[in-house]
Every structure is written in structure tokens, then in C-alpha cells.
Design a protein around this nucleic acid. Sequence first.
DNA 1: TTGTACGCGTTATCAC
DNA 2: GTGATAACGCGTACAA
Lengths: 335, 335
Amino acid sequence: MTGLNESITADDVARAAGVSRWTVNRAFKKDASISPKTREKVMRAAEELGYVPDLRAAALASDRSNLVALLIDDFTNPHKLVMLERLTRALRSRGWDTLLVNTLNREDTGPALLNASQRRVDATILIGIQFDDSVLAAAHSARRFKKLIIFARTSENPNTISIAVDDAAATKEIAEYVMTRGYRRPLYLAGPRTVSAHLMRKETFQEFWQTHFNVTPDTISVEAYDPALAGQTLTEELSGREREAYPDIIVCENDALAIGCIDVLRHHFDLQVPRDIAVIGFDDVPQAGSPNYRLTTYRQPLTEMANYLVDVLESDETTKLDKKFLGHLVTRESA
Amino acid sequence: MTGLNESITADDVARAAGVSRWTVNRAFKKDASISPKTREKVMRAAEELGYVPDLRAAALASDRSNLVALLIDDFTNPHKLVMLERLTRALRSRGWDTLLVNTLNREDTGPALLNASQRRVDATILIGIQFDDSVLAAAHSARRFKKLIIFARTSENPNTISIAVDDAAATKEIAEYVMTRGYRRPLYLAGPRTVSAHLMRKETFQEFWQTHFNVTPDTISVEAYDPALAGQTLTEELSGREREAYPDIIVCENDALAIGCIDVLRHHFDLQVPRDIAVIGFDDVPQAGSPNYRLTTYRQPLTEMANYLVDVLESDETTKLDKKFLGHLVTRESA
DNA sequence: TTGTACGCGTTATCAC
DNA sequence: GTGATAACGCGTACAA
């Protein structure tokens, strides 16, 4: 019923408009040298025939696809939806298309990267991937990528471009706040060890606390950035303590964990936030602002970061493009 | 530093392996007629050179891209993240790639469709798009799509393939439940009128109630599937009522709305759910199961639906492919 | 089983 | 400003 336009090509339009095929192509290029009159004529013919340039062929011929691959593995964190929105918006409004690749599981990262390279994308963006350095190394030894961008995570790998918030500065701001507000028995709740390690948030917080109070705060880690799991982990931790040994604040590596904490604090321990125990997060997910959580958290300048990412894509440089951004603390009632 | 593999092509591999280029291609095709020995030889050479077939060229030559466009406009609803995950998982595990297109705003739907068609995708999937029928009609009159699939929404448009839950059956099940549990003063909270109209959930519920109790339940609609907005709208509605005129249950078109309702019921009106007012949703988003909401809601068989979608892609049929699925009610404590 | 024209719809580049 | 030639890397059909 709807068969693809029976392949209307530039040739057809050329014939209809009485010009050459190359003129048709020029009409569709922004800065081409072509007389307004001819262009007008061509465009009218194209319109009538329903012709639109074929981007596959264009990519093949020019070796530039205006396409980037976006690799994601963790769909449980609602923050990912926000990142997807910001990224695709920035990309698309500046003429870039996005190939979304769901990295099905740990073993699939390699194949996923390969997949992207087979589509000959202009860049591959890793967002929250549980990337081994070994995977990255493999990807690079095959020299299969024009640009490999790690978004919202710093990376020490010299072959990648990392666009992220300044975690150290952010964590210090959070620690400063915790200290200033008079909290003295923080519990740091980190994410999965392998991922968390890249963030250095936990380490920064511990260092800060050590410096100022000469004690290392308690720290536990959750196996995934999942609210339910965070709640469970926290429950186990607190169940083993006397009431007096409870922390006065739980500093979470991100909002997903923080929200899970608040839920169990209220509904399992029957405690109030922040009266009994305060909670602080990271990301400022949409939920954080709801009347239910009113979470104090740190907001990354995602839009700015996404726009910078497009700058990177459009840049000819391929190195020294790493950039760290400063966000800001959003103070609400949870801490 | 990372220049794309200097364009290793099948020719290079052919030369290295001492065979013709076409033999190289065969080696990479699943069911090709080629001797195991030759294939082995070819693959080894390919491995060494770091060759992988170029999917752009393959698509151009075969007119089959194994690529689908996924158009989304509403990123505020957390359910979208779940849908994205299920869809990309089903697609990718069966060899399909996904082009994610963020329909930036109402006016951008047309350009977004065009964009997809320029990439010559094998199908375009609309998920929660505020599609005008006029837009669809336009898209089709240009006959630019092989397959146009509406996912998780029914559509009357004969040129599209709709894969959705059976809203009427689902809503009846919900209404049945509401009635059986003894609720008698339901308030129906619908989404934006234009989108909501496609769902027919509101209408179905009203009809059911009319049939059984001879009264039409109150109904209000929210301008977007946004929890905050839902809360605001509900607040306005209830503020204009006497306490005795409050509904005993709020039936929501989806979980995003339901969650917004629970939040204001608790934190603005200081009411308890379900004791004072019960709430029921639709979708079963991850949050719905949290200790905080314990939302009674309706779960669509998303995985099954996503798999069927891939069946559709792989089918030669192009019509009569619509399918409605049955989900089930997940009863928790909110109603 | 393996090899050969030819075509897919563009872009780059040069000639006019 | 406009037309023409040669890639781009692979698939299809058919021949060997």
C-alpha cells in the first residue's frame, strides 16, 4: 500500500526539471553555487515527484554520515531518560541523527561497538556504560572509531573524549554543605564498585571528611543504581545497628539511590526525613522536586554539556577535547 | 589518533585471502553457499585486517537497511524509558538497529518523519507521538514509508499498523475492580484531550459506569502526562469542593498522573491513600511498585508487544497486521 | 562452489 | 553557473 516512493532519484528530478543530475544535488546543498532561478525550478520538480535526497548514498560517497551512535546499558535510572532527551534534542536541532544502541549485557558491549562501527557513524557516545577499560582498548586497537565520547563520566583513557561534570568540585560542594548544616555522622551510599570507581565521588567525600574531622565516614555500596536495591541495602545496614548508631545524613552517589533510601526510611523504619535522618542525592531527576521527596541534590548542566558535545562533533580536533563542567547544588528539604 | 580503519574493504580482504571480493561477501552471509575452508580463510584475513562489512553500502545496494526509526516526543513520562528499553532490546537482539528521533515539538513531527525517510529506514515507529491524523495523512500521501507502526496506541488510520494493548478490555477490568471493591464516587483523570482521545479509556470507563450506575462519573483532564501538572490540576479540582464531595477513588489514565495525585493527596491535602481516597493507574512504571506508592495499576505485556513488532518488521505483509494485547491488573495497596 | 558485470544514489573534482 | 567522470562499498543475477 505504501511502497517507498518507487525510488525517485535525482535523475528523475533532473529530467523533469530539464537540468542535469548534479544541478539537482546542488539545489539541495546549502552553500552551493547555483542560481536562485534554477534552484527554484528544481525544488518545484522535486516537490512534485516527492523527491528527497538519500542519506545512505550521501554518507557512502562523502564518508560523513551525520550520525552518532549512543550506547546505553542502564535503563533503570530515570536520569537516563533526561539525558536521552537533552542529548537527542541538542543533536537533532543541529542536524545530527542518533543511533540508539541498547547494550544488552556486559558481554554485549563489544558487539555493540562493532555494530556502531559497521554503520560508519561519525562518533560513538558512551553514556553510563559499564565499560571495561579493556573494552575501550580493544575498540581502539581496532582503530574503528573516529571519535569515542564518554558522556557524563570522566575517563582516564587518553583515546576518549570525556564530557562530564567536575565530580570532585561537586562532591566538595556537597560535603561543605553537609558539614555546614551541622551533620556529623554521614553514611556514604555508593553505587556498584566498578562504575563508582570512575566517579571518585565516594573517595572525594571520604577525603574531605577525613581532612576536616579526622575520621573516615561509613560507606556502603549498592550493586546497581536501583532504588529498590538501595533501599534493601540500606535496610540491611541499619538493621545491624543500634538506633543511636544511625547516621544523621545519608549522602548518595545519585538520586536513584537517594529515593530508594527515603522510601525505606519512611516506610520501613518509620523515620522522618530530614528530622531523623537527612538524605542528599546527585542528578536532580524530575522526581527529586516532587512534593514527596523534596530532595536536596546536585544538578549537572546537561543542556550545556550536550551542546558542547555537538561542538566536539563539529570540531576537527580529535584530542584535548575533554571538558569538565560545574553544576550547582539544589537545596530542598531533604537535607 | 583513531582514524577510521583507513577503509578496509572487501577487496583488501579478498586480495589478502587470495579469493575474489564476492567470496569475501559470501563468507559474511549466513546462509551463503561457500565451503567451510574458504570461509575460514577469509575470516582469518578479515580479522587480521580489521575488516567489517559496511552497512551503508549494503543498505544502498539491497534496499534493506535493517534500521527502524523510533519517533518520540514525550520524555516526561518515565514509562517511556521502559518502552525504549523493551523495544531496543527486542529489536537489537534480532538484528535491527534503532534510529532515535526526538520530535522536538508539535511542528517538528513532519520534519522528523521526513528525516527518517531520508535515512531510508525499513519502518518508522511512532511511540506516544502527538500525531495529527493530518500529519499521518501527509506522510502517506507522499508514500514515503514502507511501514508505519504505532506502538502502544491504537489508531484508526488504515495506513498504519497499530500494536497496542486492548484499552477497552483493560479499562473494563479496571472499572470492574473499582466497582467490586465498593467504590462509588470515582473521578476520572484523563490526559491531554487530543492524545487521550485515541485511547478511549475515559470513554470506556464512563460508559461502564453509566451502564452500571446510571450516572456519568466526573472527569477532568490534564494538559500533559506530567505528575506535577496532574497534582496541580487535581488540587484545583478538589479545592473547589466540599470535603463530602470528594471522590472515593481517582482513576487515572496512566501512572504518571496517578503518582502526581498521590503526592498532592498526601502532602497538600494531608489525606491517606487509599483510606481517604484511593488511586489507580495504568502502565505499572517501576516507581509504582516502590514502598512509597504501592500503586494498583494495569500492566501491558510490553515484551510480548515488542517481539510482535519485530515479527511485523520481518513479515512481508504490509496490512492487516494490527494487533491488540491483553495485559493484567496488578493489585497493590493504593486501591 | 566460485567469479563477473552492473547497478544502488550520492559526492568530489574538474572541465566548460 | 552547469555538465560530466570517477569513485564510495556492496548486492543481485547469472555465468563458469
